[in-house]
Design a protein around this nucleic acid. Structure first.
Lengths: 211, 211
DNA sequence: TAGATTGTTAATCGATTAACAATC
DNA sequence: TAGATTGTTAATCGATTAACAATC
């Protein structure tokens, strides 16, 4: 019965990870919460609090070992294991994501690509061919899939999400512009691009209110 | 000197907007904070608090007029005005965004598309041809651009962002995987896809901790 | 050992929820 | 007028920041 980790902390983890990789590439061996604080423009206190949710990774009088902390955060986020994924919706966005080699570097391996458009049938992206959606059921029975990426129009996305869950999928990366209503044990991460664009638009309209 | 609106509230606005559009399409004329609360799975209290940051849009004993509230939130987010945008980086993601017709429905009009890859020169996406990055300076002098969409690799993104700002751009929708260091009056909205994927990964690894 | 910096407790700040008077 | 529901104040909860004792 571990203490609950807040969503705010989890959102910051990938950012720590990113800065630590940069430090690693710069050849920096150790860093104090204060130095990292200056780089990332967050308080040193927050850094120490955040990290201590997962254990004591530092050492008094020394700081944090960059490589060690980087690896530990990677483990916390599950970057150390391989995740197989399928992309459902091979339109522009689906294809763009399929082409992202950098995801593969983090252990996210594309193994399937589905669409309803017959024109896409057999088209191959980075060695993965597009299959028709009605072949998905069969496919998912045979392959162990950890994540389904939902990049299809709003229209049928809800139904397809339900189908995916019925077929045993427990995690969905949702780019469709709707909130999925799924069982509690299914993990969903939303990327609502137009929501993001609207936030930008709001901030443009209220630029003078910026701090 | 208006009271400061919190970031948390602004993040929720597009979601309200989305649910109101759905209601509108269903032909619902009025809705109470309580009914909307049930649909959106947030508290009615939060809805009323959020909306009252911007003014009293409801009426006691009646609730909120869906059409009116929808339009008002649209205005708050600046959806009523046209925004011209350029996409810098015409790779897979840039092209995918260029193809998003739905952005245009919200008043975001693509007017330029830039890349460094000569192979893309002259390629046309939805009637907008890809130009070479070195033509951008000239282009930005002549066109009024409200938003630059940064969809290029991490490598030069920082430099290009600085260049954009020098050329008078005040708003950047940043898909590059780094934090831009720009003057305070420049509005930046980040979409860090791999951060999002890592959050999903974390939640998979800690699924039992889900509430 | 002295100095530095963490891990952690306490204080503050802000956001969410509850309650209710105002009012349509 | 009575009932419903907002707008808004007060209470609660949670997250961030500050402070400092523990310890390398």
């Amino acid at each position: 019965m571990e203490k609950e980790i807040s969503r705010a902390v989890i959102r910051r983890l990938p950012r720590y990870y990113r800065y630590l990789r940069d430090l690693l590439e710069e050849g920096v061996e150790r860093i104090s919460s204060n130095e990292l604080s200056a780089r990332m423009r967050v308080t040193a206190s927050q850094i120490r609090q955040d990290l201590n949710n997962f254990g004591g990774f530092g050492q008094q009088g020394y700081g944090y070992n960059v490589k060690y902390l980087y690896d530990e955060i990677g483990k916390i986020m599950g970057i150390n294991r391989q995740h197989n994924l399928v992309i459902v919706g091979a339109g522009n966005l689906g294809q763009a994501l399929a082409n992202y080699a950098s995801f593969e570097n983090m252990g996210f391996v594309l193994v399937g690509l589905f669409d309803v458009n017959p024109a896409l049938k057999g088209v191959s992206i980075r060695g993965v061919e597009v299959r028709m959606l009605d072949e998905m059921k069969e496919f998912l029975k045979e392959e162990r899939i950890d994540i389904a990426v939902l990049t299809m129009p709003k229209g049928n996305a809800g139904k397809v999400a339900n189908m995916l869950v019925e077929l045993g999928i427990h995690a969905i990366w949702n780019f469709a512009h709707l909130d999925l209503e799924l069982p509690e044990d299914v993990v969903v991460e939303n990327v609502h691009l137009s929501d993001s664009l609207m936030q930008l638009s709001y901030n443009i309209a209220n630029r003078e209110n910026q701090k």
